[in-house]
Design a protein around this nucleic acid. Structure first.
Lengths: 168, 168
DNA sequence: TTGACAACCTCAAGCGGCTTGAGGTTCAAG
DNA sequence: CTTGAACCTCAAGCCGCTTGAGGTTGTCAA
């Protein structure tokens, strides 16, 4: 089964950095790896697949906590997959919100920048003035919601997770 | 000039949290505030305007470091405003990139979620399988560039800034 | 067998941009 | 004069890693 992949080889295959793999082990996303006598990690196909799954889900914008849930599903394939759909749907909705927001911001910024073509002094610069006065804006805008969906159940703190992972 | 605004009143007027205002003072975005005899902060119109400027620029997605540059321009209105335009243009470009990425992600996720309508077991769930296998994806996707533009000159570390602000 | 050297190891701290909390002090109204 | 909301400082926490120091292992050629 095991190919005896080193952590570096695994990193190359999955395009996940070495330090990140160790981090995933620390927080319990990846299992504790087998070790050589000298203490170096060695991985097999199952670990590679799991890491690829994580990588892909991260690329799609899922939070680490979301991924914990998705991995639990994958680990126990007899449970219903409604959770996976709910997470996916929330993620799509969050992405849509974010796209709409960004479109508004882009319009605002473009309008501001176009209204003053540079080369003049800051005192007369429309960019500066527009930033100083939100009243000039065509829309309300607030850029800072996050993409990740908020979990229905308040999750354990990160410190708690790291600690739990260390105990286990 | 000074209305003698308390930090709480300023927070309400600008929609910036009290703790955030103190943080901005710590990192030197806001000047050290005047204090009452008892040591409480009091603000005037100039500070309110500056904070509104910061708030607005943050809403538009500018990083704190970008804002430092924009504020310096505002503080010295005889300098040319090319920097402001460059920052604005970079920000627009970054937003466009981000929107394109998110559109790809959304398409991918929607396709995945639609291909399996829930209610079944995780073993057969397309969402789970699609996450496990990037080969099923219609596009490459990597969600994790940031919106903020990278500065041309490597900036001082954050710690250094906080320390410098404390010395001053 | 040995020596070089890349790749590995752990542990601690850093990044942005705030937020939260503990534990204490000030201020304005009644 | 007393209440109590609002203020103060300082430290630590949040996410999801990344970086760095300082030391050890594994592999290859000479």
């Amino acid at each position: 089964m095991s190919f005896g992949l080193t952590i570096g080889a695994l990193a190359r295959q999955t395009d996940v950095k070495v330090a990140t793999i160790r981090y995933y082990e620390e927080i319990g996303l990846m299992p504790k790896a087998d070790r050589t006598e000298g203490g170096q990690r060695r991985y097999g196909a199952a670990e590679r697949d799991r890491l690829a799954f994580i990588r892909h889900a991260r690329d799609l914008g899922f939070s680490v906590e979301d991924i914990r849930g998705l991995l639990a599903l994958q680990d126990d394939p007899s449970t219903p997959c409604d959770l996976a759909h709910e997470l996916a749907a929330r993620q799509v909705a969050a992405i849509e919100r974010r796209i709409r927001q960004l479109a508004v911001l882009k319009g605002e910024l473009t309008r501001i920048a176009d209204s003053c073509k540079g080369g003049r002094m800051a005192a007369d610069c429309r960019v500066i003035h527009a930033l100083a006065d939100h009243g000039q804006c065509a829309h309300d805008h607030a850029a800072h919601d996050r993409i990740a969906a908020e979990p229905a159940v308040p999750p354990p703190t990160r410190k708690a997770i790291v600690r739990a992972a260390k105990r286990a």
